[in-house]
Design a protein around this nucleic acid. Sequence first.
RNA 1: UCCCUGGUAGCUCAGUGGUAGAGCAGUUGACUGUUAAUCAAUUGGUCGGAGGUUCGAAUCCUCCCCGGGGAGCCA
Length: 590
Amino acid sequence: MAEIDHHRPLLHRHLDQQGGIAVDAQVAQPPLDLVDRGDDAEGRVARGDGQDAVPHASGGAMDDDRAGAGGGMGGEALGGLGAHGRDDVGSAAFHQRRVGSDGGGTAPPPGAGNAALMGEHAAMIRRDRIRDLLSSGPPPADGRPVVVCGWARSRRDSKAGVSFIDLSDGSCLAGIQVVVPAAMPAYAEVTRLIHTGTAVSVTGRLVPSPGRNQSVEIQADAITVVGACDPERYPIQKQATSLEFLRSIPHLRARTRTFQAIHRVRSVLAFAVHRFFQERHFTCVHTPIITAGDCEGAGKQFHVTTLDLEHPPRASGEGIDWSQDFFAQPVHLTVSGQLEGETFACGMGDIYTFGPTFRAENSNTPRHLAEFWMIEPEMAFCDLEGDRQLAVDFVRCTVRDALAACAPELEFLEKQQAPGLCAQLQQLVTVDFAELTYDQAIAILAKAGRRFEYPVSWGCDLQAEHERYLVEEHCRSPLVVSHYPKDIKAFYMRLDDDGRTVAAMDVLVPRMGELIGGSQREDRLDVLEQRMAAAGLDPGRYQAYLDLRRFGSVPHAGFGLGFERLVCLVTGTQNIRDVIPYPRTPGHCP
RNA sequence: UCCCUGGUAGCUCAGUGGUAGAGCAGUUGACUGUUAAUCAAUUGGUCGGAGGUUCGAAUCCUCCCCGGGGAGCCA
């Protein structure tokens, strides 16, 4: 099999007159064959050693695709099952086509329209996306030529003369039904080789479907097995399997619909986060991942070092001589971008961060990760009320975007794992969030007439059971609790006038509990210094932070939000480890 | 880290002291434009690991490993 030359430019692009990206036909290269068929009359795409791989763009050499799955079909050669002899789909499917390169008024080949939309991406392998086929309107009765590449979810055989393959290419939740006539040459190979998980390429015609569960289907003219999948060893079944089991095979769980649905929602939410802030003209600030700062109270930190851990250099005493380390001082992975975010807010006004965050807490729960993505907006000239409004708007807008863009995914997830999900999300978008001060919340809990495991008294932190009662039983809606006692909150939160509480607020939602925590920051230098002293912090390490209060200090406020918790909320997922591709938790870094 | 609960076929699970089981998947056959197809047959097991109790242990005890739930910490 030929290597894909990743260094060779696949397309040359330039900005056209309208400012869009267009293919420059003048510098277009001749079509690239991604598969060297050699002289094999059957157009084989099998690896010589029987370990098959799907060509894709990101992995460098094709050999990288072998994810240690062993010998697969044991060296069995996998035939291209094309119906057209040498001119089979082995070449048709993996042939680069270029927009406008056909010339001469020839009808566009299958997939060409798609290629025009997708540009360089589609040029890698010319194929139709199932998403496009399902939304392209009814095909003519005699069909429309298409090429589809994907993974079989299941195969059903009918002795009446056809086999049915449910094919998914990941472009959308739905698969498409491929109808394989038994009269097709090498039909026996289809039933022998194509199982759940097999990667195939299909050339055929998109036609109206006489079946009940789909409006269109593909009548196959030829099928190529791109990558075989040994059904005896492939761990994923066509029937639903548990998320717990899928966690043990993180490299394969992207093949499942539940995982795909969750992660399409995650992707849409990530975009919605940026959209929300960008539309409000917040500046996205990339705060550092490696930091010497210590965001007090935000959790244990991971060390970052290049020192030899077996033999670290020692100073005169027994301590490690950090001056010999890469940064000449001890540094860590960030636990929060807030302090750096404040420095930019106190200059650019409204900013937000959205990036990875690392906490070395030994937290083993369905709501915690050692590596997660955090969103932290910060606004100058803003008080707690403005902060609260932004937080509520944020939840509403991002959830609304997910509902609008991911209806099929959310309906699937509702059916699969979260009864009532869509109605709950609709409620989140439309209903008013309840508001309580901490004082009011304590009073309500004291009068709740129920025994809590943790007794309620003023000054105690709200426990999970307290939050759940307030949200799910008392308010029956999302809830914002504000003005907590100063002793249970961080030093940087602005002291209220009564001296008892600080201008902090938490957004609590059903099922998840705390989704957002925020505060107005202490902008008075003297008060901040007093609070740092009371917290036992070394002011020498916070001079930059204090400078913000020395020079042109302004009221400012912000909040922090764990992105994965938002994804859990929107997808109705119980365990946070299922909403991030590779969860990092104590003892686990798969 | 603490408490609870679980680990049996590739997957989902039943079996609570006396011959190791079912559904799905796989294989074979039948049947059918099928829809998690259906029907029949069949392959497949170090019952998480190591000790112990017992005539006999998947089952009871101890320790360890791993999963899940709850709590704490926190987002």
